[in-house]
């Protein structure tokens, strides 16, 4: 009932509001909401820093992360280096900086691939319905029933050796595994939001005008059903980074000489009691990166969801 009361007030709002401000698209409204949200700025700064780290690590450190000074193995933070050195004598600070590249690459590429596959399949099953929907939904359910971590382990261990040849192939193999198992949740989401948008009168009006299916999808369904996908994709980007670290930790994701937070965390386990800083710094970077994307997803959701405004 109180919703009704507020609605009664807010319905009246745009009437004159529009006179003052021309061209208020929903995207610009979303940006307006984001701009005033401190969570957005915190997460944006975090993501920007990590992205910069991934693209241009030498901006942050001049030390070579593969320069092992065994003599200074396990030295503590402050003894000549910021974060100390690990068991191999690598500079932990430099390792953390260089580790960002693998994480960001895996996160971004997995998300892009999962969004493309999941979004496309979700769109097809939501828009066409019927047998297409049934088929794709069942296929999605099958993938959905495979636990992500277990599935990834099996997938990765079954890949041919050739994938371990160079850095990009190693990254790609993790990306493939995660995208292969991650698309169903995005497809489900896309499907349900397409099904919500499809019966709207503006879609019917376009049909009545004789618009082609591709036009209906492009200008009516896609722009109105994309918001949940963007939100969940942003949040799961953080999740993929965490899973990549987990796989690397278990020794089946990235492998040395690749540099990854997961690998470093795994290597630090031996000194958990004696040299906790070896574990602490890569874990901190990992957590901050995951947190950045999750917070960003939350902020974007608040901005895109008109109900919270």
């Amino acid at each position: 009932m109180t919703d009704a009361a507020v609605a009664e007030v807010t319905v009246a709002e745009p009437r004159e509001g529009g006179v003052r401000e021309e061209e208020r698209s929903l995207a610009s409204d979303a940006w307006r909401a984001l701009r005033g949200n401190p969570v957005f700025w915190v997460s944006a700064v975090l993501i920007a820093v990590f992205t910069l780290m991934a693209i241009w690590p030498s901006l942050f450190t001049n030390t070579d992360p593969r320069e092992a000074i065994l003599a200074e193995s396990r030295s503590r933070p402050g003894d000549g280096t910021w974060f100390g050195r690990d068991i191999q004598g690598y500079d932990i600070y430099a390792r953390c900086i260089y580790g960002a590249r693998a994480s960001i690459l895996v996160g971004v590429m997995t998300t892009a691939m999962a969004v493309a596959i999941g979004g496309g399949i979700g769109m097809i099953s939501g828009y066409l319905g019927g047998a297409w929907d049934a088929t794709f939904s069942r296929i999605g359910d099958i993938f959905f029933s495979i636990p992500l971590l277990l599935g990834a382990i099996i997938f990765l261990s079954s890949l041919p050796e050739f994938f371990n040849d160079n850095y990009f192939l190693v990254i790609m193999k993790v990306v493939l595994a995660l995208a292969f198992l991650g698309w169903p949740s995005l497809a489900r989401l896309m499907r349900s939001s397409v099904i919500q948008v499809k019966p709207n009168d503006y879609v019917q009006a376009a049909r009545a005008l004789g618009a082609s299916p591709s036009r209906i999808i492009r200008s009516h369904i896609l722009p109105n059903s994309l918001a949940p996908l963007i939100v969940v994709a942003t949040i799961s980007l953080g999740g993929y980074i965490a899973v990549e670290a987990t796989l690397s930790f278990l020794g089946i994701g990235l492998q040395p000489p690749a540099i990854s937070w997961g690998i470093d965390i795994s290597a630090a386990i031996v000194g958990l009691r004696t040299t906790p800083h070896m574990l602490f710094f890569p874990s901190l970077f990992l957590s901050l990166a995951v947190l950045g994307f999750i917070l960003m997803g939350d902020a974007v959701r608040d901005a895109l969801d008109p109900k919270t405004r």
Partner: peptide, 11 residues
């Protein structure tokens, strides 16, 4: 009409 405040009065 809608927005006139009639429902708010009731509430």
């Amino acid at each position: 009409e809608s927005g006139s405040g009639k429902s708010v009065t009731a509430q």
